[in-house]
Measured scan of single mutants.
Amino acid sequence: MATVKFKYKGEEKEVDISKIKKVWRVGKMISFTWDEGGGKTGRGAVSEKDAPKELLQMLEKQ
């Protein structure tokens, strides 16, 4: 499965696309949330040019 790689608060992170729940556009950035388990929700953002095609497809479906 595809993953999204991004930096959050200076830390490199990687999230499996299948865990992503919500995707939206903020200017030229793609923001998203995912389920971290245990009732926690993670947040992240990646530039439109660095976003994997699967993430962009999720954005178009909404």
Rank of each mutant, 00 (worst) to 15 (best):
V46C: 05
T3Q: 03
G37F: 13
D35W: 08
K21V: 14
W34C: 01
A51V: 06
E54R: 05
I20V: 06
A2S: 06
Q62M: 07
K22L: 13
K49M: 11
F6E: 00
E36K: 10
W34E: 00
K53Y: 12
K21D: 09
K22D: 10
G38E: 08
L55R: 00
K19P: 01
E11P: 00
R25F: 10
K40G: 12
K49V: 11
D16Q: 13
G37H: 10
G10E: 02
D35S: 09
K49G: 08
D35Y: 10
M1N: 14
I30K: 00
Q57Y: 14
T33F: 07
G42N: 07
K13S: 02
T3C: 04
G44Q: 03
P52H: 04
I17C: 06
K61T: 11
D16S: 11
T41R: 06
F32M: 03
S47K: 08
W34Q: 00
D50F: 08
T3A: 03
I30R: 00
T33M: 07
K19G: 11
F6N: 01
R43K: 14
M1D: 07
G39F: 07
G37T: 13
A45C: 14
G10D: 04
K40W: 11
I20N: 00
E36V: 14
P52S: 03
K40N: 09
K22I: 11
W34M: 02
W24L: 04
L55A: 01
W24Q: 04
G39I: 10
R43E: 10
E60Q: 13
I30Y: 10
K53E: 12
S47I: 14
T41Q: 07
T41V: 10
E60M: 11
Q57K: 10
E48Q: 08
T41L: 11
K40D: 12
T3P: 02
L56Q: 12
E14I: 06
T33N: 06
F32G: 01
V23L: 08
G37C: 15
V4L: 03
V4C: 01
V26C: 15
V15M: 05
W34N: 01
K22E: 13
V23T: 13
S31E: 09
E12V: 14
G10A: 02
D16G: 07
K7V: 07
Q57C: 13
K49I: 12
G38A: 09
G44L: 05
P52M: 03
S18E: 06
K13Q: 06
D16N: 10
E12S: 07
A2R: 08
E48A: 08
K5R: 15
F32C: 04
K7Y: 05
D50I: 09
E48K: 09
I30D: 00
Q57L: 06
R25S: 06
G37I: 10
Q62L: 11
M29Y: 08
F6C: 04
E12K: 05
T3I: 11
M1C: 14
T41E: 15
Y8A: 02
E60C: 15
K19H: 12
S18Q: 09
K21I: 15
K5T: 03
G27Q: 14
E12F: 09
T3N: 03
V26R: 12
K21F: 15
S18K: 09
T33W: 05
G27A: 15
K22W: 15
K13N: 03
K9A: 04
V46P: 00
E11Y: 06
G38S: 10
M1R: 04
F6H: 01
V46F: 02
L56V: 13
G10V: 01
K9E: 06
K53S: 09
G42S: 08
G42Q: 15
K53R: 04
V23R: 01
E36W: 11
G38R: 08
K5I: 04
R43H: 11
E48T: 04
P52R: 02
R43N: 14
I20L: 10
V26T: 06
K21A: 15
V26H: 08
Q62G: 09
K19S: 09
Q62Y: 03
W34L: 01
E11R: 11
M1L: 15
E12T: 07
E60N: 14
A45H: 06
E36P: 05
V23N: 01
D50M: 09
K13R: 10
E11M: 11
D16P: 12
K13M: 09
K40H: 12
K21N: 12
V4H: 00
P52A: 05
I20G: 00
I20K: 00
G27N: 13
K28P: 08
K49C: 15
K9R: 07
A2M: 08
Q62C: 15
M29G: 06
I20D: 00
E14T: 09
D16K: 10
L55T: 01
E11D: 04
G37Y: 11
G10R: 01
I20F: 08
W34D: 00
L55Y: 00
G27Y: 14
K13I: 15
K22C: 15
K53I: 14
E12P: 06
K61R: 04
I30M: 08
E60K: 11
A2Q: 06
E12Y: 11
Q62T: 10
K9V: 02
K22V: 15
G42E: 11
K40I: 12
G38N: 07
A2G: 10
E11A: 05
G27T: 10
L56A: 08
L59W: 05
K21M: 15
F6Y: 06
M29D: 06
K21T: 11
